[in-house]
Amino acid sequence: MIATAMSNGAKADAKPAAEHDIKITGRDVRVFYGDKEALHGVDVDLRDREVTSLIGPSGCGKSTYLRCLNRMNDTIAGCRVTGSLMLDGKDIYDKSIDVVQLRARVGMVFQKPNPFPKSIYENVAYGPRIHGIASSKADFDAIVENSLRKAGLWNEAKDRLDQPGTGLSGGQQQRLCIARAIAVSPEVILMDEPCSALDPIATATIEELIDELRENFAIVIVTHSMQQAARVSQKTAFFHLGNLVEFGETRQIFTNPVDTRTQAYITGRIG
């Protein structure tokens, strides 16, 4: 079959998308900065245990959309979100929602690794502590080890847990930030260009990690690297000028996109 020659590897085939439940349902999501509408009515279903990549040129609205998913836009003055975003059927923007709790359920990893100026141990234990997830030393130890293991950092960090997180290499710092996000047992992890400050080896490590994390979390990743989107995600959403132009199976988007704008963007043509 030539048409499906480009595959995302065996793992992508292991669990057909239809088997996973929808984690986040977005309908007619619009974002305004003051009077200006930056995102024009986006409809996307994000599935559990699946990686969805958001791609598009700078200013297309992909990061804006990502930040809607854990209400990071609330922190921007003059920013307003309309439409509906449901996490497991509950409105993320409902007044009764505790934003701090929401962000524990929908964790985030940023472009530049940003460990706290604390020890590696405290970086991971901080979230569980403020959320009251653990109380005894043994519980914290278990969470720290487990999170660092899941983030693929345990072997490198286990003998230096009391040393500052900022002393790690860039790639290690990013994995520490992922461990920190995992430590509060989130359901969704948002990643905003998590590899753009990393070298190719550290990038490959993070990509492998994303593939492993997919077994437990829904992951949404904004990336400027189309190869990265092609490598790590099962679904891809292409944004352009604040519109969601095309959303579908990654393998289809990168081999045979439907919309000419998607085609122009991913093949590097003048759009």
Partner: peptide, 11 residues
């Protein structure tokens, strides 16, 4: 690292 129509042309 061609994509979409370019990849299909090359293949």
């Amino acid at each position: 690292q061609p994509m979409a129509v370019d990849l299909r042309q090359i293949l």
